[in-house]
């Protein structure tokens, strides 16, 4: 369990440091695989349900979704994430910082129990890495990857806490995540079609920076004297 947690953390760090998108997809796929086998090693026994869940998880997260993302990547013709908001080196450093933060939070949270769960740290770390990726990267594809990592983090944390729900709910959650990322994949295609790029930093047509030109909003609305003429004209 600890080993898997360490591996998860390492893949995340790797993700932060790599500029090549195909590599990043592979990393995430590997992460999906690791998370898929996590329930098997967490010592809950090998019931049929656990096996099905693990299999579904692996198929979805490490095969289907990465495949789709790869297709999207091919179609868009992009290879690298260029000029992220925070450079790759700094990202790795921040990643390490985030790792410490996760450790700190987890240690504070579990101080009553006196145990520090490494997989919980990994969960938090994945969550933060996912957020960090979405925040600092520009390509829509990377953001989708970031979301996947975040989702992995949540899942890992959930497993490490041992808070398991019934089979159906777990399956439902998996399905939801899958559909979500699937949708993102579809939209990646659309983005590529519409914009000829998948850079989300150029997604800023929708903002409130523009001010309306309304007569009622300039201070002169208080002074209506000069408008006498208009009214007389209308009569």
């Amino acid at each position: 369990m600890n080993n898997i947690a360490t591996l998860l953390a390492l893949t995340s760090l790797f993700l932060l440091g790599s500029s090549r998108l195909s590599l990043a997809i592979n990393m995430v796929a590997f992460q999906g695989f690791l998370i898929g086998i996590l329930p098997l090693v967490s010592g809950h026994g090998f019931t049929l349900e656990v096996l099905i869940l693990a299999a579904t998880g692996i198929i979805m997260k490490s095969i289907a979704l990465p495949h789709m993302l790869r297709k999207a990547l091919e179609k868009s013709g992009t290879k690298r994430e260029v000029e992220p908001y925070i450079s790759f080196g700094a990202s790795i450093l921040s990643g390490i910082l985030l790792l410490f933060v996760s450790g700190w939070i987890v240690s504070r949270l579990t101080q009553d129990e006196g145990i520090v769960s490494s997989s919980l740290i990994a969960g938090f770390f994945l969550l933060f890495t996912g957020l960090f990726t979405i925040i600092t990267r520009k390509k829509a594809l990377t953001q989708a990857l970031g979301f996947l990592v975040l989702e992995n983090g949540v899942y890992t944390a959930g497993l490490s806490l041992g808070s398991e729900f019934s089979f159906m709910v777990e399956l439902g959650i998996l399905l939801d995540v899958f559909v979500g990322i699937f949708l993102m994949g579809i939209m990646l295609f659309h983005i590529d079609n519409e914009f000829d790029h998948i850079d989300t930093d150029r997604f800023d047509a929708l903002s409130d920076l523009e001010l309306p030109d309304l007569e009622l909003l300039n201070g002169n609305v208080l002074n209506l004297d000069q408008e006498l003429d208009e009214e007389e004209g209308a009569e």
Binding site: F147, M184, M187, H190, E194, F203, A205
Partner: peptide, 12 residues
């Protein structure tokens, strides 16, 4: 384009 942008933001 705009609806795509909105939908993407919404989804993410």
């Amino acid at each position: 384009k705009k609806s795509l942008e909105a939908a993407w933001k919404y989804l993410i």
